[in-house]
Design a protein around this nucleic acid. Structure first.
Length: 398
DNA sequence: CCTCCACAGGAAGCGCAGGAGT
DNA sequence: ACTCCTGCGCTTCCTGTGGAGG
């Protein structure tokens, strides 16, 4: 029975199931992560026999399947629980949203006592609820802490959870910690570190051909048949592989490209759509970065952008290409002017240099040391993006 | 060659906010 | 509730550096 609404809706679009293309969607099959999934399942398997499960620490860049794999494994664990009636539990918690030890405990307690309103309960009471649940059901509880680096006082939380295990005569609590912050592990308290990192896994980035098959799989469910050109997929995969092997980025590219295809009334997503999509995705990222910049860094960036577009005061350097390059001194002068215009007191020149360095770290400008042809020892600054776009992003705020 | 320029970037210190200790 | 401490953002001061210009 055909749904007329859907037919009508899908008339002028390449999309079939947008949901399948969203980043929260978890496919049944996760290509190129079979080994990781198997290893995770092996880690958790002792739980099925009432044995202690080692805590697991997952690390890898964004969009390499850490969360998807974990959710998948937890799902399988709960399926097995249903099927064979074994006392295991899996709780997934996103610590970016629940970023305190209290909120994490609240989530776990809510899982243990469904239907009860526990908000406002003291920490000790939540702790008690969890202990009661685990010991009465003799359950092996697996708690997933996604983006674990966002938890404020993680050491306290880890301490509480280890204490839980000491107090439990039956049942057990174990943790899967997930992060994309490479430095996170070193920042941990040594005790928390040894607790959390009993078992470690690194998720490597996807390469181009892996990304390609991931995309193909999603495209099959997300788009109408034949609406994505083969070489467009290859291009999106290749670009994302360059970008750091991020599958989310690849998906975003394809979705953006699809939107452009729709907007043009075209029937097929082609290379050119991916190319423009990439620009737009990149611009989105730059816009976000600029929007969240501290005030004075914004003003410095504004100074650089206005000098670049003005061109009048800009000296032309670089023999072969004649690129527009700014001197750190004139950037500071312009920055002071901008500050006065906005009636803000300018920071010192020393600090302005730090700001410029920060902007470089964010990839908004590039700097080189002055060599031949320049008097003295100066930093030459070049804006990475077109000045009008930067100005637009700066204007968004306020 | 020396001097000067136009900065780079380290070190010390200052005021403030927020957390720990009592 | 109080002080004390610490970290952070920032200024001020200072020494270092490499090429231009005389």
């Amino acid at each position: 029975m055909a749904n007329v609404f859907e037919q009508e809706l899908s008339k002028n679009t390449v999309f079939l199931d947008r949901n399948a293309l969203s980043q929260s969607y978890i496919p049944d099959h996760l290509p190129h992560r079979e080994a990781e999934i198997e290893r995770m399942m092996r880690c958790l398997a002792p739980a099925l026999q009432q044995k202690t499960v080692n805590n697991l620490f997952l690390y890898g860049k964004t969009g390499v399947g850490k969360t998807s794999c974990t959710k998948h494994v937890i799902e399988k664990l709960l399926e097995t629980k249903q099927k064979h009636n074994v006392p295991v539990d899996g709780v997934y918690i996103n610590c970016a949203i629940n970023n305190s030890k209290y909120q994490v405990m609240l989530k776990v307690a809510e899982y243990c006592c469904p239907g009860e309103n526990l908000v406002g309960f003291p920490f000790a009471a939540l702790f008690e609820k969890i202990l009661n649940y685990a010991s009465s059901k003799n359950s092996n509880m697996v708690i997933v802490l996604d983006e674990i680096d966002k938890v404020n006082n993680l050491d306290d939380l880890m301490y509480a959870l280890t204490r839980a295990n000491d107090e439990l005569k039956s049942g057990h609590v174990s943790i899967i910690g997930i992060t994309n912050n490479a430095l996170f592990k070193d920042e941990l308290d040594p005790r928390s570190k040894s607790t959390l990192c009993e078992e470690e896994m690194v998720f490597p980035p996807y390469n181009a051909s892996q990304l390609q098959s991931i995309l193909e799989e999603r495209i099959r469910i997300g788009f109408k048949p034949g609406s994505v050109d083969e070489s467009a997929i290859n291009l999106a995969a290749a670009l994302s592989a360059q970008e750091s092997g991020d599958a989310r980025y690849a998906l975003k590219l394809i979705v953006k490209a699809a939107e452009m295809t729709d907007a043009q009334g075209a029937a097929k997503i082609l290379d050119k759509h991916v190319v423009t999509a990439r620009k737009s995705v990149e611009e989105d990222i730059v816009f976000d970065v600029i929007k969240t910049l501290p005030e004075h860094q914004k003003i410095v960036l504004r100074a650089i952008a206005s000098l670049t577009s003005e061109g009048s005061k800009v000296r032309r350097l670089g023999e072969e290409r004649g690129e527009l390059v700014l001197f750190s001194g004139e950037v500071f002068e312009q920055y002071e002017k901008e500050c006065r215009k906005m009636e803000k007191s300018p920071r010192s020149a020393r600090w302005c240099r730090e700001y410029i360095r920060d902007l470089e770290m964010l990839g908004l400008v590039t700097t080189t040391l002055s060599g031949k042809g320049v008097r003295g020892n100066t930093t030459l600054i070049k804006l990475t993006f077109p000045p009008d776009k930067v100005m637009l992003a700066l204007q968004r705020e306020n």
